[in-house]
Design a protein around this nucleic acid. Structure first.
Lengths: 201, 201
DNA sequence: GTCTATACTCGGATAGAC
DNA sequence: GTCTATCCGAGTATAGAC
């Protein structure tokens, strides 16, 4: 596996990762096969393994990239902004992530569901640290009386749960809603109401 | 595969299903192996296949049983009870399900995440019908002004998302919270506050 | 009913030609 | 860099003795 250098190498690596995301997010790590990924990428199986040393390596690359994207919306929550607006902004950005990157959401969900065998350190490190930092900000806002007093970590959990649900349980959501619905538009309105009521001091 | 009749047959079938639930919920359908299940059940692999004709059949049996358990808490929501108490009761029962049956929750989550390949009809049938029925009840309560006006189906989604999160993302929840926390006790208190504020007319 | 042995398939990875 | 051919391990399922 060459460190991608030439333009062709970079382009092929990206094509492979794109196809792999499709397959891993739909079937999980074990359920995915190199044949499927190769077919999706329009390459032969050995050629795939010219770019990545193993199935494991492809998966690892996807997870590593994913985490950064995933934490960004929370990072952007500004301690100096208006508290309610900042939390609502976070909810909105997180819901947009579910809408625009549902495959990434499912990849992440499957990994955590199975005990995070390939992501433990990231969760114990970056993610936990970021939540601790932002929980402190939230607690500060609560003490100032600018938002309602709540457990700040469970508040963050609630935002994760409610927004990811629309990506991860997409099939169920669409089936139950039936025809003629825009799940994300409705979710946006519902969550706006929910957090407005919840956060009011 | 004999229809379980004798006491030994029933006991062995149950032992197998118990072990299978462990393995399927931890690794997904493809990730699970008959070897693991057999070891967990204390039986040989061929003996396993004496009780169930295939891996698929074991999985199917688990899913079918699961759905009933899963829908019960919503079924119990009484149209003639006090609206706020009924919704809060549903939230509580659903959270208890997450706490007491986390493996079942994860089995269900993995199935839906992967597009519900083995549960489509159940979701399109029983589950959708039950939600439609209860949404009607909720809408009625809203029109009477006894709870706040909200999209009733998304209200149900929110209860699913918030309660299942604690079972499905258990690893993440415990890691982020750190030592010395009781996730379900805290979640119970948090969700009580959340829905009290949300439902107040 | 339960075991040992084994058939058979699938899938990840490698060899080596071009 | 990309291909064909192939190896090899893992895993589902079956045959058949006891």
């Amino acid at each position: 596996m060459p460190r991608p250098k030439t333009r062709i190498q970079i382009r092929n690596s990206e094509t492979i990762l794109e196809a792999a995301l499709d397959v891993f997010s739909a079937h999980g790590f074990r359920g995915a096969t190199l044949d499927q990924i190769a077919e999706g990428a329009g390459l032969s199986k050995p050629n795939l393994l010219y770019y990545f040393p193993s199935k494991e390596a492809i998966h690892q690359t996807l997870l590593t990239r994913l985490l950064e994207t995933w934490l960004d919306p929370l990072r952007e929550m500004d301690p100096n902004g208006d508290p309610v607006a900042e939390v609502m902004g976070y909810v909105r950005r997180k819901l947009e992530l579910s809408r625009d990157y549902p495959r990434e959401s499912r990849l992440f969900a499957i990994e955590i569901l199975q005990g995070a065998p390939r992501m433990r350190e990231a969760i114990e490190g970056d993610l936990t640290a970021l939540v601790a930092e932002k929980a402190k900000v939230l607690r500060h806002w609560m003490e100032e009386g600018r938002i309602a007093r709540l457990d700040p970590v469970h508040l963050v959990f609630s935002i994760w749960a409610l927004t990811q649900h629309y990506a991860d349980f997409d099939v169920q959501v669409r089936t139950v809603l039936g025809e003629g619905h825009d799940p994300y538009a409705e979710a946006g309105a519902f969550l706006e109401t929910l957090y407005m009521r919840l956060l009011a001091p």
